[in-house]
């Protein structure tokens, strides 16, 4: 699944990282607790979260994640987007709720297991 597919499945808006849309992701993690995210390393992953601060981007960066999706229509501020740009991470925002967003991606083939 590519980041562009995620954008389409979640009817999401791309806030930065347009140039990464064709990159492929193999797993996903949905959480508002960053330490839970940090507990399980997966390759080429996307992070879905309702948490809104710069540590979301740092966590993604530490995990070598390439895409962050903010759910429930949350719009990150410029500081968060700038940090994502510097870190080479695509940022999307979707109006879906966490359960729904994860369900859509899971049933579309993004099962969360590292390849």
């Amino acid at each position: 699944m590519t980041i562009n597919d995620i954008k389409n499945y979640l009817d999401a808006e791309v806030l930065c990282g347009e140039e990464f849309l064709e990159k492929e992701v193999f797993s996903a993690c949905g959480s508002d607790m960053m330490s839970d995210v940090l507990a399980y390393v997966k390759d080429q992953a996307v992070l879905l979260t309702g948490l809104m601060n710069t540590q979301v981007i740092r966590t993604a960066e530490m995990m070598d994640m390439i895409c962050v999706v903010f759910i429930r229509n949350k719009k990150p501020n410029e500081e968060i987007i700038e940090l994502a740009r510097e870190s080479g991470i695509a940022v999307l925002t979707s109006s879906k709720r966490m359960y729904e967003a994860c369900g859509i991606l899971y049933s579309s083939g993004l099962c969360g297991k590292a390849e």
Binding site: M33, M34, S35, D36, L38, A39, T49, Q55, V56
Partner: peptide
Amino acid sequence: SLGFGAGMGLPN
């Protein structure tokens, strides 16, 4: 509320 403090830091 900032996404930490779940008691996973040291174990991680």
